[in-house]
């Protein structure tokens, strides 16, 4: 296989990875890593490097739109970025010492959990009771809706912060955005409205990934010839996905199909990790 054929295959594959990642809300990274390692036999370190760069591209692209609409809670994002960047730094350092087959198994497990979580029903919740820490840190805010501005409060700041450290470690170790974990921290623990938690998570993913990408860059994990088609493909795929999401309202069965595909990939990663092929 020559470079030109290889690049074209990755470009097309990454496009679908970006599309799938955007439609499931899992992000492009979780699909691109199995594609590169399982199908194209790329070393997992190169795959993680390429995925991380594509995660930054999609985060910057989509966060720009949400920030302008004023839904993103920038103070909350910045405060939690202390946790995610510190976690990402630890994850990236750990990645050097953890054997690749353990990385593959952990990747599969996280992917499986994320797929299950993406199926769960999302009910909008507004909490108004004031927490001391949230007030001190000016985290309580409001966001615009069609019926006017909605006020909300933030609960359990400590718990959310702790979960974000974990999300950061996973992101740095596996080269994914770990958006699912970030949304759990904000949705389930801190009780933030769903719309705010998803956009703020997206906003934070770029900085989190950058904190570990600076390590990967120096370790030679980011190989330009491979990253180029991955980042272009994922970005265009994610863009198409965001267009489709706007047009289709009831995508219930679509989510199930995706969850099954992603679970299959997760199983393959775990299996290949156990038998030591990765």
């Amino acid at each position: 296989m020559t470079v030109i054929v290889f690049t074209l295959i990755i470009l097309i594959g990454s496009y679908f990875a970006g599309l799938l990642g955007s439609l499931t809300g899992l992000g492009g990274g979780v699909v691109i890593i199995p594609l590169l390692t399982l199908i194209l036999n790329v070393d997992i370190h190169y795959a993680i490097g390429a995925s991380l760069v594509s995660v930054i591209a999609t985060s910057s692209g989509s966060a720009a739109a949400y920030v302008k609409e004023g839904i993103t809670n920038m103070r909350l994002g910045m405060f939690l970025e202390i946790a995610t960047t510190a976690g990402a730094m630890c994850g990236a350092i750990l990645a050097v010492y953890v054997p690749t087959h353990y990385i593959a198994i952990l990747f599969g497990v996280i992917l499986l959990c994320s797929a299950l979580l993406s199926l769960r029903k999302k009910a909008e919740q507004i909490v108004t009771e004031k927490s001391y820490l949230a007030k001190k840190l000016k985290l309580n805010s409001c966001y615009p809706t069609s019926t006017g501005s909605v006020q909300y409060s933030v609960r359990n700041v400590g718990g959310g912060f702790f979960m974000m450290i974990f999300a950061g470690v996973v992101s740095g170790l596996l080269g994914i955005g770990s958006g699912a974990l970030k949304v759990i921290a904000m949705d389930t623990i801190m009780r933030i409205p769903f719309k705010v938690s998803t956009t703020t998570s997206n906003f934070m993913i770029g900085v989190t990934a950058s904190a570990s990408a600076v390590v990967y860059l120096q370790r030679g994990y980011i190989s330009p010839g491979l990253v180029m088609p991955v980042v272009i493909g994922v970005l265009f795929g994610a863009f198409t996905g965001s267009k489709i999401l706007v047009h289709t309202k009831s995508s219930g069965w679509l989510r199930w199909v995706f969850a099954i595909v992603v679970s299959f990939l997760a199983g393959q990663m775990i299996y290949n990790g156990i038998v030591g092929k990765i």
């Binding site: 020559t2 470079v3 030109i4 036999n41 790329v42 370790r219 010839g225």
Partner: peptide, 19 residues
Amino acid sequence: FFIYRHGHSIPNYKVFKGI
């Protein structure tokens, strides 16, 4: 530029050897 110059060489990402 990369494709123009190296389009016909064989890529190797199977074994990690940095950049």
